[in-house]
Simulated assay, not measured.
Amino acid sequence: ALAYAAQAFQIPCVVVIREDAQLTKLQAIRRYGAEIVLVPLAEWQQRLELEQQRRNLHLVHPFDDPAVAAGQGTVGLEILDAIPDLRTLIVPVGGGGLIAGIAVAIKAQRPNLRIIGVEPEGAPVVSESLAAGHPVAPSRLDSIADGLGAPYTRAFNLSLIERFVDQMRTVSDDAIIEALKAVAQQAKLVVEPAGAAAVAALLADAEIERPVAAVLSGGNVDMDRLGSWLTR
């Protein structure tokens, strides 16, 4: 998305991204004309800051940025326009920027609407940070949902999640794959594992109050991997 916006405004864009990112994401970023810097996840924040300073660029953080969260909050407003009687919204969670923005926007209009955040069991950074009462590094970081594999969260997002999100849940990689298959077979949509996490939580709980919506937060999936998951 950032590469697309930069191309539209004809400004240079450098994306610092984890070296195990899915090929389709890298191809899309390059297609929009951005430069890619691949780094190990453990070195991501350090390299991000280094590239920003060395090149004198403006930093657009993927989740630790009030402006980014505010922009993502418009997703919530669009959902309310589309489903006025919505009772529950399920949102995938990585670093927490998406759900923080959505939750603030929705609760301002519908304070009784229930918002559930979903993380992979292998990347529970927000759940563990909420339990600790402050941002902590996740105990695990090994999920197929690489789009939700944030190595940390920040106090800005955490405070909004604590205030406006009703519940956090985790789902297994197996559940995510089953949800990915269900979305492909029933909704005829192609999503990456991160995009299927919210549906995994929905499929696991028949008691979630309806009408319910699940945010599908990404469709960058390698076709070879998708084929292997769909035939499991």
Rank of each mutant, 00 (worst) to 15 (best):
P111Y: 06
H61Y: 13
G96F: 11
R140Q: 09
E128L: 10
P92Q: 14
A100Q: 02
L86P: 00
I144N: 13
V104F: 01
V136Q: 03
R154P: 00
A132T: 01
L89H: 02
L86H: 03
S172Y: 08
E121P: 02
I83G: 00
P120R: 07
A108N: 09
P151Q: 11
S127Y: 02
G149P: 00
V136N: 03
G133S: 10
I83N: 00
V104G: 02
F63Y: 15
S159N: 12
S139E: 05
R87W: 08
R140I: 00
V165T: 06
R114K: 15
M168T: 06
D65P: 13
S129K: 10
V136A: 01
D85L: 12
L86F: 07
G122I: 13
A131F: 02
L130N: 01
T170M: 09
G122D: 07
F164Q: 04
V91G: 03
G96T: 12
L80V: 07
S129Y: 09
V91W: 02
F164E: 12
P66G: 05
F63N: 04
I176E: 04
F156Y: 15
V171P: 15
R169Q: 15
D174C: 07
D146C: 12
E78K: 01
I144T: 12
S139C: 11
F63G: 09
S139H: 10
D85I: 05
L148E: 06
M168D: 09
